[in-house]
C-alpha cells in the first residue's frame, strides 16, 4: 500500500481493537526547498503493526520523528492515541522509541541503565524482566560494561533492550534490525510479535523485508514526492 491507510479489516480479523494509535493526515515536511513528505496519510489502529518501507531519503525516519513529536511538520496533523504528540511525561510513558539515540550516562553499566529505565518507569527491576530482555538480545554478558565501550551492534541491542524493559503502548522503531545478526533479528521479531499479542502497537521503518514479514507487519511504501 502506498502512503495510505493500513487495512482496518485485516486488523480487526487479528483482534485489533477499535481506535487509532497513530493517525497522520496530510503530513508535509520540507527541508528548505526540498519536500520530503508531501501530504502523507497514515492510520495505525491500536494493536496493529506497520512497517514503513522505501528507498533511502523518502522520509521514513522523518515520519517517525513527526509521530513522536520530535519534529514539527511543515503541514498536516498527527495524533497519537487521539492527542497531538507532545513532550509531556504522560506521552512518553505510552510511547517508546528508538528514533533518537540517547546519551547514555557515564559511569553507569549496561545493567544499571536497564534497571534505571525500569525503576524510573515504575517497574520492579528485580522481577526478571531485565534478565529476560538482556537474554533475548544477547547482552547478558555485557551487564557490567560501560556503554561507551560497546560496539555499534551492541549499542543497537542495548538501545532496544532499554526500550523494551519499560512499559509502553506504542513502539516507534527506526530500522530496529540494523546492525543485528541473523539470530538476533529472529529473536527480535519473536519479541515484537509477543509485544503485539499483549495489545501493543508497533510502527517501524525497515529495509529488511524478511524481518518485517516475520513480525507480521503491514507494509506502507513511502515514495519520493513527484517534482
Amino acid at each position: 500500500m502506498r502512503n495510505g491507510e493500513v487495512s482496518a479489516t485485516r486488523d480487526r480479523e487479528r483482534g485489533v481493537s477499535d481506535g487509532a494509535a497513530v493517525e497522520v493526515t496530510g503530513l508535509t515536511v520540507t527541508y528548505g526547498s526540498t519536500t520530503v513528505l508531501d501530504g502523507v496519510g497514515l492510520r495505525v489502529p491500536v494493536g496493529a503493526v506497520v512497517a514503513l518501507t522505501g528507498e533511502n531519503g523518502v522520509g521514513k525516519s522523518t515520519l517517525l520523528r513527526c509521530v513522536t513529536g520530535l519534529q514539527a511538520p511543515s503541514g498536516g496533523v498527527v495524533t497519537v492515541f487521539g492527542a497531538a504528540p507532545d513532550q509531556g511525561a504522560g506521552f512518553w510513558r505510552q510511547v517508546a522509541t528508538t528514533v533518537e539515540s540517547p546519551t547514555w550516562y557515564h559511569g553507569l553499566t549496561v545493567r544499571e541503565h536497564l534497571e534505571l529505565v525500569r525503576v524510573a518507569n515504575g517497574g520492579d527491576p528485580a522481577d526478571g524482566r531485565v534478565d529476560e530482555v538482556s537474554g533475548l538480545l544477547g547482552i547478558t554478558g555485557l551487564a557490567d560494561s560501560l556503554p561507551i565501550t560497546l560496539s555499534s551492534g551492541q549499542r543497537q541491542r542495548f538501545l532496544l533492550a532499554a526500550t523494551f524493559v519499560r512499559p509502553s503502548r506504542l513502539l516507534v522503531l527506526d530500522e530496529p534490525e540494523q546492525r543485528l545478526d541473523v539470530g538476533a533479528k529472529r529473536a527480535l521479531a519473536g519479541h515484537l510479535r509477543d509485544y503485539l499479542a499483549t495489545g501493543g502497537t508497533l510502527l517501524m521503518a525497515s529495509h529488511d523485508e524478511q524481518f518485517w514479514r516475520d513480525v507480521g507487519a503491514d507494509e506502507v511504501v513511502l515514495s519520493r514526492p513527484e517534482g
Binding site: H106, V119, A120, T149
Partner: peptide, 27 residues
C-alpha cells in the same frame, strides 16, 4: 569520555535494584 573509556573493574551495583533511594539519586 576519556576517563570512562579507560575505567575498568566496575561491577553493577545493587543500589538501583534495591530502590531505597530515587533512581537518579542512586545514579
Amino acid at each position: 569520555r576519556r576517563y570512562w573509556r579507560r575505567r575498568a573493574g566496575i561491577r553493577s551495583s545493587r543500589l538501583l535494584r534495591a530502590r531505597r533511594v530515587p533512581p537518579l539519586v542512586a545514579q
